[in-house]
């Protein structure tokens, strides 16, 4: 690859087809290698952060027992699960979710909805 670099660093040199294929292959391989490395690091970091936050939670519960039910409720509230729609179509539900996200400033990826229920006017 160093030889290729020296040969073609000057303008005006058209690569041969094998050299072009070699350089194209090398480029995509390096892209995959670098992104794969970041993938590994981010995955490991994510697991460490998740483990740390889980370890912190029991400690917080011990320190403030009164807050424990609230924390448990919060955890349950934010656990992933399917959204239940009662009397509300999916399009309206999507609009409601988008409006809540916009008004609260919380990204949709961080909001979890348990159910959306239509309240009838009396």
């Amino acid at each position: 690859m160093i030889t290729t670099l020296i040969n073609y660093a000057e303008r005006g040199n058209v690569l041969s087809v094998p050299d072009a294929l070699k350089n194209a292959g090398f480029t995509i391989m390096v892209v995959f290698a670098v992104l794969c490395l970041i993938f590994i690091i981010i995955s490991i970091a994510g697991k460490i952060f998740s483990a740390t936050s889980k370890a912190d939670k029991p400690a917080a519960e011990t320190a403030a027992p009164a807050a424990a039910p609230a924390a448990a409720a919060s955890e349950e509230e934010f656990s992933s699960g399917s959204l239940r729609l009662k009397g509300c179509d999916e399009k309206t539900a999507a609009m409601i979710m988008a409006i809540v996200s916009d008004n609260t400033g919380i990204p949709l990826s961080e909001l979890v909805f348990k159910s959306i229920t239509l309240v009838e006017d009396k």
């Binding site: 995509i28 992104l35 970041i38 981010i42």
Partner: peptide, 9 residues
């Protein structure tokens, strides 16, 4: 979802 890196690559 770090596996998205592969699709970006």
């Amino acid at each position: 979802r770090p596996s998205s890196f592969f699709m970006g690559a």
